[in-house]
Nucleic acid binder design. Structure first.
Lengths: 239, 239
DNA sequence: CGCAAGTTTGACGCTGCTCAATCACTGTGG
DNA sequence: CCACAGTGATTGAGCAGCGTCAAACTTGCG
């Protein structure tokens, strides 16, 4: 969204002291009181919930530029956890500092709410994905989404591949399948020449094909609108 | 959330002219530009998405007191539709009027954001539900949630039953099952003396039992927190 | 070199889907 | 007042997508 110089400076100062966290660490757990807003500067994080029987549902992926829980401090406790998939640089911004900035800079506040609404829209799309599509379609849809999001933050390599540090277990817990079935489905997708995937990298070989399989329509990410708005000012907050 | 007299008045004036809509009508469709915020005053509405093959995923239920899309006017177009399950009284508040109120009454704005965050938390729980639980558990969880929400707005009848205008088809489209399987699962649930359900009414006969089956933990609805906060002022906005 | 984590494979079975028919309820018009 | 239609609930038979279990294989790494 369009932001002025001053706002950009404020944002940069907030993210001035990122810390490096090891992979597989949790940033915050369900039931705890949220006291920081986390900004992912590099690496991948993910939201998840655990069931008593140990089942895990992954609820969202957070890639560089994404903020975790901008407003969650309105709540007394987290209703889900956030973990790291890879080593990551993360800036932890104290809630009160965040609140102050939001009060002083309405444009920033609005940009942050925008990102919350996009998160919500993405959750709706994921629910549709898991509820109504079969295994092959679910994975196709997920890969299309991640492609578009990585593209939006400029993280696609020249060869068209991008970092994708998920195991097949994480793919399974994202799509509501088992890792065994994910494995077989991936094999089919490779046979069909839609993707190359392995060693923490993903390369989509046939985006139109994959998009068709996953019935992927990026409208829910609302990225074109955002683009259109920021073209007018030239400055963009990537959230 | 705690609100002053003035705020309560403003809210009442916003909802002064509700219109009555027929069942099965859509309030707004995917792709259209949102121009109103809808406040459901009586009856049930639901958010949904359609797939090209006709599959429908229901994403949320809106019961009396719920607001649709408080902030959705930040987006250029709807990424989902909202329909009505029953005849309903709905107040349509123009977006600009809503914006104005939010600017003049920060407490109202905050209360509205609260409700958006609860919507998002509920979506996360639904994704967990559909992704990780079996048919019996999914339905149990859904029924527990609706019980708690109806209770929170005082819509449980003295006999413990509440309005529940869903067909088995809607239950199927909510839980990612088929109506045939929902039917058989409901029969088991009735045999197990957990619920009575029919004629648009639901009565939970054994809440502890149902809660156990559905592994239902209402933390994601964040209702206790809200309660605790409003006790201090005595006035509550039900969103 | 050897462990740990992740991937792959096979055999088998169950949950939940498909198709299709029948039944029950409600509102309608003659 | 009743036949009729439409919508939703119920039932049955057959089947397939995906899960379970378990073992083997591959890769990264200390």
């Amino acid at each position: 969204m369009p932001l002025g110089d001053e706002e950009v400076q404020v944002l940069e100062s907030l993210s001035r002291n990122p810390k490096t966290y090891a992979a597989n660490r949790d940033l915050i757990r369900e039931g705890r009181k949220p006291e920081h807003v986390f900004l992912v500067m590099s690496g991948w994080a993910y939201r998840y919930k655990l069931l008593p029987n140990g089942n895990r549902q992954i609820l969202a992926y957070l890639i560089p530029g994404d903020l975790c829980d901008v407003h969650i401090f309105l709540f007394d406790e987290m209703d889900h956890s956030i973990g790291l998939l890879s080593e990551a640089q993360v800036a932890a911004i104290p809630s009160d500092e965040m609140l102050e900035v939001m009060e002083r800079f309405p444009k920033i506040e609005r940009a942050l709410w925008w990102s919350t609404l996009v998160d919500e829209a993405t959750l709706r799309e994921w629910l549709l994905n898991v509820g109504q599509r079969d295994a092959y379609e679910r994975l196709a849809h997920l890969f299309c989404e991640m492609e578009v999001r990585m593209e939006a933050v400029g993280l696609i390599k020249p060869d068209g591949s991008f970092d994708f540090p998920l195991t097949q277990i994480e793919l399974a817990d994202t799509t509501g399948l088992t890792s065994v079935h994910v494995n077989r489905t991936l094999q089919r997708m490779r046979r069909d020449k839609l993707i190359e995937f392995g060693q923490q990298r993903m390369r989509i070989l046939d985006f139109p094909g994959l998009r068709g399989v996953g019935q992927f329509n990026p409208n829910y990410l609302h990225v074109e609108e955002k683009r259109a708005r920021s073209r007018s000012s030239g400055v963009e907050l990537r959230v």
